[in-house]
């Protein structure tokens, strides 16, 4: 059974442990600005919303890449960037309608969530279970994915 990140914004306290864990896992530094998961703050509502790649089926980033630098990790289903192949052209960063693959000026490559190879550190670090790593058919995940893809007509019109 493939697993997926499930995010429940209602449980997020905005502690940013996920951002710290993610940046440490991927860059070796505790630097939230280099985290692949981002917690958005809604002051008016008093809410926080962690947000990262849903590893969507459309894989807009993967399809737009001109040099075949993004591939599917067969074990986790994550769309993974190969640093060896990525030339830093950034086409994927405008192709992804969710804004979850981004250019890193520090590395000259694009970066995105890779599910840490099957042991996502954001979920491990989250003290309130706002981020969990669960079976992909769990309904909460479906709702998140459906919300993310809500009314994106490209996804419907070209679903093969």
């Amino acid at each position: 059974m493939q697993k997926s990140l499930n995010i429940d914004p209602g449980k997020c306290t905005g502690c940013l442990q996920c951002e710290m864990a993610c940046s440490y896992e991927h860059t070796g530094t505790f630097n939230p600005s280099r985290s692949y998961i981002k917690v958005f703050t809604f002051h008016h509502e008093g809410r926080f919303a962690p947000y990262t790649c849903t590893q969507c089926d459309e894989a807009w980033c993967m399809r737009a890449c001109p040099v075949d630098a993004i591939s599917v990790d067969m074990a986790t289903g994550a769309k993974v960037v190969s640093d060896d192949k990525c030339v830093g052209c950034k086409v994927c960063t405008i192709a992804c309608p969710f804004g979850t693959i981004n250019y890193s000026q520090a590395t000259g490559k694009v970066v995105k969530c890779d599910l840490c190879g099957g042991d996502p550190q954001c979920a491990a670090a989250c003290p309130t279970d706002a981020i969990t790593y669960v079976d992909a058919d769990w309904t909460g995940y479906d709702r998140m994915l459906a919300s993310a893809a809500k009314s994106l007509p490209s996804a419907e019109a070209t679903a093969g």
């Binding site: 994927c92 405008i94 309608p97 981004n102 994106l152 007509p153 490209s154």
Partner: peptide, 16 residues
């Protein structure tokens, strides 16, 4: 700006 620019596509193309 390099962070999250793709969401501009999402906002436009989903006609939210």
């Amino acid at each position: 700006k390099t962070q999250h620019v793709g969401v501009l596509r999402g906002l436009i193309e989903s006609r939210i």
